[in-house]
């Protein structure tokens, strides 16, 4: 919970967090090492100096540190966990649903546990999706279109195989599809950053929400163009938000663009924990104001009400979280613990 100076409580849903294991024991090969080094580069390049972690802590921080950073020291009320498997780079995977389920078990009212699928897994993958739904009652999935698999160097959301999975998602009530369209792991073939496939599936599956993580960076421009035409396309702020510290001028411009093209109801806060911790991000975001000249140019404001939507309201709407009921539930849980 974040409290404003006037005492107003703001409910925070962190739209994008990870619990990974990139410890030396779990690293399989040079790619696994380079992958975590690259994440650490993002952490180091965009964090305020007092928020920097050592590389050792960054590689594996563990469940208790994460609870502390999100819910105790940090302002998050709830957090959405998206898995990233990377079994070719890490012996037990980087950040699987099973790993994430540990946190869910300890914090059932705070964690929204998402699954994952890969349309190239065929019938077996559809069965696995059913199993995830049954076991964890997932309401969302995370997809990674640039991931390699056998001879394939990525897929498109508009592929017929992907459509079969989306049909299953509709049937199982998995209505939130988080798509990693951002800095990719192995962007080799075609133009792996291309966001055009979102356009097709968002039109063809109007009952699903497509949350484009990292707002399509490095293709923010194309993403804005697509998102404005599709009412069920959202933008996740992970990676964009940390610029609020290192480049506030850019952040202001990007935020204005997102408000102009996507609109205030379709932007979701995400810390991308452990790359960044939510506390400083939320504090800076709450204190942030768009410069007058930008407001004049785009006609878009970043008011307290809009900040509340971005920090929690929008995610609550698509994940069917009743914020007041959830607040009461969390208060009970705290009392029981005390």
């Amino acid at each position: 919970m974040y409290k404003t100076k006037s005492g107003e409580e703001i409910f925070i849903i962190d739209g994008h967090v990870h619990l990974w294991d990139a410890s030396p024991e779990n690293i399989k090969n040079i790619h696994g090492k380079q992958f975590i080094d690259c994440f650490y580069g993002y952490h180091s390049a965009l964090s305020p100096p007092e928020q920097l972690w050592t590389a050792e802590k960054f590689a594996k921080y563990g469940v208790e540190q994460m609870e502390k950073d999100l819910f105790i020291d940090g302002p998050d009320d709830m957090a959405i966990m998206n898995p990233t498997y990377l079994k070719d780079f890490y012996k037990n995977g980087f950040n699987t649903i099973e790993q994430n389920a540990v946190l869910k078990k300890r914090n059932p009212d705070r964690i929204i546990l998402n699954g994952a699928f890969d349309p190239r897994d065929g019938e077996g993958g559809i069965e696995a999706l059913h199993a995830q739904s049954e076991l964890y009652n997932i309401k969302g999935v995370k997809l990674y279109t640039a991931e390699w698999k056998g001879n394939s160097r990525g897929y498109k959301l508009s592929d017929p195989e992907a459509y079969k999975y989306f049909e299953v998602c509709e049937k199982l009530g998995i209505k939130n599809v988080h798509v990693h369209k951002g800095p990719t792991i192995i962007p080799l073939d075609r133009d792996a950053f291309d966001v055009a496939d979102i356009d097709h599936c968002a039109t063809d599956f109007p009952n699903l929400n497509f949350i484009v993580e990292h707002c399509g960076l490095p293709r923010l421009d194309d993403f804005c163009w697509i998102a404005v035409q599709e009412s069920n396309v959202f933008g996740g702020l992970a990676v964009v938000l940390p610029f609020i510290h290192s480049r506030p001028g850019y952040f202001a411009k990007v935020m204005s663009e997102l408000l102009f093209w996507l609109g205030e109801d379709k932007i979701l806060f995400g810390s991308d924990y452990g790359i960044w911790t939510p506390r400083w991000l939320v504090e800076k975001f709450m204190a942030f104001e768009l410069p007058d000249e930008l407001v004049k140019e785009t006609g878009k404001q970043l008011t307290l009400d809009i900040k509340k939507k971005i920090l929690g309201g929008n995610a609550a709407r698509i994940y069917d979280v009743d914020i007041e009921a959830q607040k009461a539930k969390l208060r009970h849980a705290e009392l029981a613990m005390a």
Binding site: D37, C38, Y40, G41, Y42, S44, A45, L46, L217, P218, R219, L220, D221, C224, W225, V239, F243, S246, R247, Y250, K253, V254, E257, W261
Partner: peptide, 27 residues
């Protein structure tokens, strides 16, 4: 067309930061 220029500048800032961290140089 403004979003095109902004996008390039935003990516440029990110890439410069990553390059500086990777090779241990001050941004």
């Amino acid at each position: 067309v403004r979003r095109v220029g902004l996008n390039a500048e935003f990516n440029g800032a990110l890439c410069r930061g990553l390059l500086a961290v990777r090779y241990g140089e001050a941004p």
